[in-house]
Design a protein around this nucleic acid. Sequence first.
DNA 1: TACAAATTTGCAATTTTGTTGCAAATATTA
DNA 2: TAATATTTGCAACAAAATTGCAAATTTGTA
Lengths: 138, 138
Amino acid sequence: MSTATKEILKKNNMSVTDSRLQILDLFYETEGALAHADIEKQTSDKIDRVTIYRTLQTFEEKGIVHTIPTADNSVKYALCKEHCEEGHHHDNHVHFVCEHCGKTTCLDDVLVPEVKLPRGFEPHQSNMVVNGLCKECK
Amino acid sequence: MSTATKEILKKNNMSVTDSRLQILDLFYETEGALAHADIEKQTSDKIDRVTIYRTLQTFEEKGIVHTIPTADNSVKYALCKEHCEEGHHHDNHVHFVCEHCGKTTCLDDVLVPEVKLPRGFEPHQSNMVVNGLCKECK
DNA sequence: TACAAATTTGCAATTTTGTTGCAAATATTA
DNA sequence: TAATATTTGCAACAAAATTGCAAATTTGTA
């Protein structure tokens, strides 16, 4: 329901609008990540494509969602589970993309392992995406 | 020079054409990965956009280059250093993207570590991208 | 509650990115 | 060198994303 999502918007100093509520609700109802096209299909036709782009961008800036780098280079978004503040993401968990159904899952409990980089490289953030088959598709 | 790259094309059963030589030379001259736009800028205007798309696709199929999934979801290509055969890539190394200069580097010696997935997930391939500052930009 | 200010939205136009079909040009093979 | 096969460039198209701006909605305040 919109009550909880409403609070999230307020907490982040965002105006509470119908589009934002619908899109945020959708994220909470959905298991796995969402692409722009998914959101367009699964929300009211009243919401313009452009609004969806802008909403996703705002959500990302506010630390509500994060983007996932997938192997096929399609942009996907998922809810930030915790610790994300404005302008600074902590989505240091592994993402899984199913090769069969295409669903992208945040493995919140699997942290991206540290790696030793060659001399001179200063790491700030790591991303890891695993492709394979999910439970349902095996 | 084109002599070496020419051999690579021949070895992979590809016709030796000017476009392919130019693009492959560019990869050998360039440290770090290249996006389609980079190639378009840095080759002769005689080479058509479409040809670049098709050449990159062919190179990938032949195992000459591989794609890199970056956090900003732009498609980048880098030379496969070794072991890549037609239709089967072994680019299981970590990629580094500099936040300052934007350069993408293959860390050929840093292998993507294995992670333990939750029950039910069957991994096939892993990708890891580290963001931060490179030697030059620190 | 009502009003002014600030923010957000939708539309239209445009840009960027990627794809396809096909004839002309180029490369390969014999 | 001629015949065959492959590749290229062009044009048209399709999809994805961005921008400016006026209208609509939301917010803060009286």
